[in-house]
Design a protein around this nucleic acid. Structure first.
Length: 600
RNA sequence: GGUCCUGUGGAGCAGUCGGAGUGCUCGCCGCCCUGUCAAGGCGGAGGUCGCGGGUUCAAGUCCCGUCAGGACCGCCA
């Protein structure tokens, strides 16, 4: 080792010790005859006192080695801001290991450069304690997950990243195959099918910190390649998976956020979540619940509401406490906000702070009777604003109110940023209507109906519930999973309902169905969106902060310049332009629909 | 695919009603300085105001297009 001690570890008790340190010049204070250098290494910072002539040439981020004695600082010169502030290292010997050119961005915890510069010079960005800390936190999170899972006899098993294309779900990333021109691998959207095969294989308890790939547009919490903590267990029920999930988050939050997760974590049904919060991933750090007004307003002459009610739809409201004090401009701003989300607008009534009298454009359209009881019906007080949404499609209106609820909380400062609110959203619907009038699986087609619906989901596909569960933290879905179907007859019925015929099922999922013929155990699992979870634990507002070398929004890596064009020779060798051979009885020429676990 | 925000010496910003590349903090270069810790003092260098076009006597500023970064919707669990 070039060094004998870590800079950040030195304390008063080390006084008198001769140490060799190696690190970077974080800052220098040149007084002519004496020069102070803050020497930074992976462990932290310590002040080095130099009196040598050649120390004047030191610049920020020079990589240096220092031999010297740890000494207590002179009285009055301690720096209580630093963990090492009681001591300093008086240098006898200075070696410049590597000089640094003038920096394209400051390596300084107090200064943040723009995102593209940070990513282009990520290796400098990561010298700062914040970005470095986020990656170190993630490393520890990985370790904790492995500790929890290995203590329960899980096996960490890797699965292929060159696999079959999956035309359903998200768009695939594709890889041309030189040895079979005209054919393509796909990068996995998740290890879903492989982990189910591992259950058939008798592995019983599998996990993997798995890289997944989806070719869709970016968000602050989405990258084209991302990581799941992927878990599958045999001979378990939904409750067993939930219990494991709770143990994982409890350990993670206890150690990394100094927070004791209240257990059991509250469970809310999907339907309740939609009715009360207008979201399948409700943020429970604040109240502001939705109120359904479909019955209350039945008979109204206001066409916007009556139209929805008569069509069997939904009218609901959400209250903005103190919202009556908003200016006309602010209230108009809500209309723009709603239109930006594709809604026609956001009807509102404000209750006068003094008299409680309902005012606003919509108030004129409601009867005296409806107006009179409105405050009580929605739980609004004088001074509040009431926002309405109405639609034939219940979910559409609820989601608008749910989005308004979040916006209200933001604008009114109702969010306690230091709070953690966990919940499970359970009893998710199995199916939803497709645009073509058929049904599609909400989770994926191997998700089991729950006990109540096992034998009769065909009778009311819109109401059938699944053994599917999502874990939600502060309004972020950080994990989701389900109990899988392991019985051939149930699987066939689900395929029938989804309009997937036997031939098509064989074509798309043949190898999995084949595997299930040989004694498939009941199994269930969960996938945890690891980037998102680490983002929350680190207090970041983007998953880019917990990824070592993230891509920018356009899918570019500003550091390497990827992606790049390829040469004509590469193109030729890769066989990109080759025409596929006709399928000679090979199943699966359409590719396999890889159902994908929820979360990220 | 759509809506919105941002782009000004190396970094972060300000730049009014369209009137000279103007200003601030940091960094960089030189000199001074023995107890600082965002050290300090003096001096200096550094600019295609993202790019292209338009309006105008005159554009960092207004308009159109485009590129890059970011937020959201669609998409994606």
């Amino acid at each position: 080792m070039i060094r004998t001690h870590d800079a950040g570890s030195l304390r008063a008790g080390d006084a008198g010790t001769t140490v060799t340190l190696a690190g970077w010049v974080a800052r220098r204070r040149d007084h002519g005859g004496v020069i102070f250098v803050d020497l930074r290494d992976g462990s932290g910072v310590v002040q080095v006192v130099l009196r040598e002539e050649d120390a004047h040439a030191l610049r920020n981020e020079f990589c240096v080695k220092v031999v010297g004695e740890v000494t207590r600082r002179p009285d009055g010169n301690e720096n209580p801001e630093l963990p090492t502030g009681e001591v300093e290292v008086t240098a006898d010997e200075l070696t410049v290991l590597s000089e640094a050119a003038p920096l394209p961005l400051p390596v300084d915890d107090a200064i943040t450069a723009s995102d593209d510069l940070r990513l282009k010079y990520r290796y400098l960005d990561l010298r700062r304690s914040g970005p470095a800390g986020a990656l170190k936190l993630r490393s520890r999170a990985n370790q904790i997950a492995r500790e929890v899972l290995h203590a329960r006899d899980f096996h960490e098993i890797e699965t292929p990243t060159l696999t079959r294309s999956t035309p359903e779900g998200a768009r695939d990333f594709l890889v041309p195959v030189r040895l079979q021109p005209g054919t393509w691998y796909a990068l996995p959207q998740s290890p879903q099918l492989f982990k189910q095969l591992l259950m058939v294989a008798g592995m019983e308890r599998y996990y993997q910190i798995a890289r997944c790939y989806r070719d869709e547009d970016f968000r602050a919490d989405r990258q084209p390649e991302f990581t799941q903590l992927d878990i599958e267990m045999s001979f378990v029920t939904q409750e067993d998976v939930i219990e494991l999930g709770e143990e994982l988050v409890a350990r993670l939050w206890a150690e990394l956020a100094d927070y004791t997760v209240p257990r059991p974590i509250p469970q809310i049904t999907w339907t309740d979540a939609m009715n009360r919060y207008g979201s399948d991933k409700p943020d429970l750090r604040y109240g502001v619940e939705l109120t359904e007004l479909t019955e209350y307003l039945r008979g109204t002459t206001f066409r916007v509401f009556a139209g929805a009610i008569d069509a069997g739809g939904y009218v609901g409201a959400v209250v903005m406490p103190g919202g009556a004090s908003q200016t006309r401009k602010e209230l108009d701003g809500w209309q723009d906000w709603a239109k930006a989300r594709g809604a026609r607008g956001l009807a509102y009534v404000v209750l006068d702070a003094e008299t409680g009298e309902p005012r606003g454009p919509v108030a004129k359209n409601l009867s005296a009777e409806h107006l009179g009881g409105l405050g009580d019906a929605v739980g609004a007080k004088p001074g509040d604003a009431i926002f309405f949404a109405a639609a034939t499609d219940r979910r559409e209106a609820q989601e608008l109110l749910g989005a308004a609820r979040i916006e209200i909380a933001k604008r009114s400062g109702l969010i306690d940023e230091s709070a953690w609110a966990f919940c499970w959203v359970v009893d998710a619907p199995m199916f939803e209507r497709t645009d073509e009038g058929g049904w599609s699986a909400v989770h994926h087609p191997f998700t089991s109906p729950n006990a109540e619906w096992m034998d009769n989901f065909e009778e009311a596909p819109d109401r059938a519930l699944a053994y599917a569960y999502d874990i939600v933290v502060n309004g972020n879905e950080v994990g989701g999973g389900s109990v899988r179907i392991h019985r051939g007859d149930v699987q066939s019925r689900v395929f029938d309902l989804l309009g997937i015929g036997a031939d098509e099922a064989q074509d798309k999922f043949g190898f999995l169905l084949e595997a299930f013929r040989y004694g498939a155990p009941p199994h269930a699992g969960i996938a945890i969106g690891w980037d998102r979870l680490c983002m929350l634990l680190s207090g970041s507002d983007s998953i880019r902060e917990v990824i070592a070398f993230p891509k920018s929004r356009g899918g570019l890596d500003p550091l390497t310049g990827a992606p790049t064009p390829i040469t004509a020779q590469q193109r030729q060798e890769a066989g990109i332009d080759a025409k596929p051979k006709p399928a000679a009885g090979v199943p699966g020429t359409d590719g396999v629909a890889a159902p994908v676990e929820s979360s990220s």
